[in-house]
Design a protein around this nucleic acid. Structure first.
Length: 886
DNA sequence: CCAGCACCCTAG
DNA sequence: TTAGCTAGGGTGCTGG
């Protein structure tokens, strides 16, 4: 290997992708933290950080705040072989509502923390700060986010490293030096450096030029073997395409060489989590006799190909790994499945790559042209290898286009920035890890001990949630929608709700907050401001700051700056909204069961009080859900909801609109109080519901014009398109006051379905289907998950898919057509036309007539025209000429 | 025909 | 180093 090395100091800025740690050689009780970064100027960096060593904290439950000598033995801890030095007295910390002295115990190595923790707690100690990864500890203790500047000693650099670094030296001695410093050897990155914790600084977020690798395998349906593969590298927009043919071994070695040479941060593809990665793992195992051999085919981890990293068990960091049904982990890189991203942000009706690309780029035929039959891949590969390869290449480009369109990567980076964690944690971590990142560092600075995650299993009793107002069937004209700004966070802030302020005993406090129903008490703010309220207030302020910066950047015409700030404000919103759920959970480290319940009871109290007041003032409250209130702005007004074209009617309409806006603003300010800010969100010219909670539509006229639909089939991914289309059109008509038109539309569509005039493609039902892989028998099974799988239509459709040689992954949506509803369970046929073409299944008209009559009938019955009338009409449309015959 | 149940998906 | 929450609507199957 050729490289350049020096005794050079180097300083630059980068974004932390992920991190890990390794003990320094010689059992010296020191640990180096590895940070994999992408620099602002585009090269990759591995940073070995020194100066932070693993520790845990302990306290004695029997020692109070006035004493510094515990009843338990500190000496025996000092003598433990796993412990470095003597425990360090930190002073008092708050733990479960009590102040008591805490000691910090340094541990030789991160791998033995778990055992030591359980031993100490068996001996009677309360052990805290003991389940936090060292790399997270680094970010917390040094108050860093993902964007950092650093300076240090250069240990190794390749051709992509900055030109200023020039002196040549040999690879072996560089590798040796890296190992002495706790590293693993020559990592496959552009630049390797060493520094001290004090050399790291938090800096303002910037858009990092990440490198992404997208890949796709074509495999034999018969033998599961790999036929060919393609990959694309995206280096800040510049893409290079790579094709792989030959033996399976050659294909996988080619992919692995590409990963190691191009050194991507993200690894993507369509459905890689459940298909390409597990298949590559399987085939590389099958094609090798040792881990070392396998590493040439699947050694994608960003670590050197040393014996230690390859490992003697399946624990070597060189291999991508997945713990039981969880996300994939690849050392130093981030797997990011385009399928999952599309599913999460788009909620598409169906989830095949064809369907999603058609959804995103309807005008581009070439992106979705069907030219290879995936269910006959062996034959296709034999007869038309060029076309198969072209198809394979296209399927590696599309995932990159999807991520680009959904802004997935900048979103993860923004979330990492506002939650001050690595991009990997933002991308693959859990909501409680994002919140940990902020709460733990604040707790450390405020003398609050860090309890471990609550590992109890089994569900505790549910807490009560939000309030939902009954809704009457029918249309209401001129409605103002008010809602609370960040309701749950505001409640936590204004009532100082936090585990650090919860009053746990019956002690008398001079002043405190008391929840309205269960009388849960929280300290007043002059006694102590809760960590979480403090944090939420900070986040609220920072969101305002980002929003301002966004507007300013738009004004200045700086698109990049506007985009960055928009991402950041959005990430803050996501993060703030995650707090309630985490604190209402049963396992989170700073949770107490009373916290979640207090938040929602204050919420219910606030909103029902306002509703009562509005009603007693004579207002008609049409609907309310958790943090929103829909209120009629005119009691006896006949101004039609449909916007007239001109004349005096238009003037009347405009004045009704003005009136609604004025009243909306007035009511919002009237009912706003400290810590519960009510905002006027939208004005509706008409509101309709058939009378069910969480199902309504509105004609929005301010601040923009749109049709608002909530809950109804139109919003559901398991509806079929003729139902969604018809219902949407009916809503348009109803909100314009044309009820007759809506009923007629329902009748005519049902008639067409009865007569078999609607194409099957408008009748596809799609639902997600779970399943688990039976290793022993090598097939998908459903009875571990479902009580009676064969009675579920989507399971039967999934089984049909599988039997036809198509991919199945747990949780995927499966499309099907109901072909005979007279039997029970009803007969369904999988929708495979998108993937393998052929004739569509023949739908059972009666089933669809019934479904439409039921769903559309719910709507029309609110207009006094019920389901049975719709069905009668469909059976014999010619005899029923007028709507009002009935 | 109906109640009870399992399961999916959405609102917030 | 396992893990956000509750409220609510709706479909289809089973068994009486």
């Amino acid at each position: 290997m050729i490289g350049r090395v020096f005794t050079l100091e180097w300083k630059e800025e980068a974004c932390i992708i992920s991190g890990d740690n390794r003990a320094l050689p010689g059992n010296v009780g020191k640990t180096a933290i590895e940070l994999w970064c992408r620099s602002k100027s585009g090269h990759s960096v591995l940073l070995l950080v020194h100066g932070l060593n693993p520790y845990i904290e302990i306290s004695d439950p029997k020692t109070n705040s006035n004493s510094t000598s515990p009843s338990l033995s500190l000496e025996s801890i000092s003598e433990d072989w796993r412990v470095v030095g003597t425990p360090l007295l930190l002073g008092n910390k708050l733990y479960e509502g009590e102040e008591r002295p805490h000691w910090r115990v340094f541990v030789k190595d991160t791998t033995i923390v778990r055992k030591l923790r359980s031993e100490l707690s068996t001996r009677g100690w309360d052990v805290t700060s003991s389940d936090i990864l060292l790399v997270h500890r680094l970010l917390m203790d040094c108050d860093l986010g993902p964007h950092i500047s650093f300076s240090g000693e250069v240990l190794w650099a390749n051709e992509r490293a900055p030109k200023e670094i020039t002196r040549l030296e040999d690879a072996d001695s560089a590798s040796e030096r890296i190992k002495q410093l706790g590293g693993a050897g020559l990592y496959p990155v552009d630049l390797i450096m060493s520094c001290d914790v004090s050399d790291l600084r938090r800096i303002e977020p910037f858009p990092t030029p990440f490198v992404t690798f997208s890949y796709d395998l074509e495999t034999s349906v018969k033998h599961n073997t790999i036929l060919c593969a393609a990959a694309v590298i995206d280096r800040s927009g510049q893409r290079t395409i790579h094709e792989f043919k030959g033996s399976e071994k050659e294909i996988m070695e080619g992919l692995t060489r590409l990963v190691r040479e191009e050194d991507p941060d993200f690894i993507t593809g369509y459905n890689i989590d459940n298909f390409d990665l597990p298949r590559t793992q399987e085939r590389s195992e099958e094609n090798s006799n040792s881990f070392s051999e396998q590493s040439s085919m699947f050694g994608w981890g960003r670590v050197p190909l040393t014996n230690k990293e390859i490992g003697v068990k399946k624990t070597g960091r060189i291999f991508p790994q997945r713990q039981q049904n969880r996300v994939w982990r690849i050392s130093g890189r981030i797997p990011l499945d385009a399928w999952w991203q599309a599913r999460q942000t788009l909620s598409p009706q169906r989830e095949s790559l064809r369907y999603v690309s058609n959804l995103l780029w309807p005008e581009q035929d070439d992106k979705q042209k069907l030219d290879v039959d995936a269910s006959q891949m062996d034959m296709e590969w034999k007869n038309r290898p060029e076309e198969v390869m072209e198809y394979c290449v296209r399927d590696t480009i599309l995932p990159l286009d999807i991520l680009e369109r959904l802004k997935s990567i900048p979103r993860k980076e923004a979330l990492a920035s506002v939650s001050s964690t690595t991009v990997e944690t933002a991308s693959a971590g859990t909501t409680s890890q994002w919140i940990d990142s902020l709460v733990v560092r604040l707790a450390d600075r405020n003398g609050v001990a860090i309890p471990t995650t609550n590992r109890t299993t089994g569900r505790r009793e549910q807490i009560a949630g939000g309030y939902v107002h009954e809704v009457e069937p029918g249309v209401k004209n001129w409605v103002a929608v008010l809602d609370f700004k960040s309701m749950y966070p505001s409640i936590m802030i204004s009532n100082n709700i936090c585990s650090t302020t919860l009053i746990r005993d019956s002690s008398i406090e001079s002043s405190h907050f008391v929840s309205p129903i269960t009388n849960t008490r929280y300290l007043s703010k002059d006694k102590r401001i809760g960590l979480v309220p403090l944090l939420l207030q900070d986040l609220m302020n920072s969101r305002d700051k980002y929003k301002k910066a966004y507007s300013q950047a738009l004004e200045d015409g700086d698109e990049d700056e506007a985009f960055l700030n928009d991402q950041l404000q959005y990430a803050v919103k996501i993060l703030m909204n995650s707090f309630y759920g985490v604190f209402a959970s049963s396992f989170y480290r700073f949770t107490h069961e009373k916290l979640g319940a207090s938040i929602t009871e204050w919420a219910r109290y606030n909103i029902t009080e306002i509703i009562t007041n509005l009603e007693s003032d004579g207002y008609d409250v049409v609907y309310s859900d958790t943090d929103s209130i829909f209120v009629c702005t005119m009691s006896e007004d006949n101004t039609p909801a449909k916007k007239p074209d001109s004349g005096s009617e238009l003037l009347a309409w405009e004045s009704a609109k003005e009136e609604t806006i004025k009243l909306g603003e007035q009511l919002a300010s009237q009912f706003t109080k400290e810590g519960a800010e009510l905002e006027f969100e939208t004005a509706l010219s008409a509101f309709f519901s058939h009378g069910a909670k969480k199902r309504y539509v509105g004609r929005v006229i301010w601040p923009r014009e749109e049709l608002l639909i909530r809950g109804y089939e139109v919003r559901r991914t398991d509806s079929f398109s003729i139902l969604s289309k018809t219902m949407t059109e009916m809503f348009e008509l109803i909100l314009e006051g044309d009820e007759e038109g809506a009923i007629n539309l329902a009748k005519s569509v049902i008639t067409e379905v009865q007569q078999g005039k609607i194409p099957a493609s408008d009748l596809i039902v799609s639902r997600s289907c779970k399943g688990s892989w039976d290793k022993k028998y090598g097939k998908w099974v459903f009875d571990k998950i479902y009580a009676n799988p064969d009675s579920l239509p989507y399971v039967r459709a999934a089984k049909e898919r599988i039997s036809r040689g198509l991919q199945f992954t747990p949780g995927m949506k499966v499309g099907y057509i109901i072909t005979d509803s007279k039997t029970s369970p009803m007969e369904v046929k999988a929708w495979l036309v998108d993937e393998i073409g052929g004739d569509p299944p023949k739908p059972d008209p009666q089933y669809y007539v019934n479904r439409l009559a039921k769903s559309l009938g719910r709507i029309t019955s609110a207009l006094n025209f019920d389901e049975s009338k719709l069905k009668d009409y469909a059976k014999n449309p010619s005899t029923q000429k007028s709507l009002f015959d009935f």
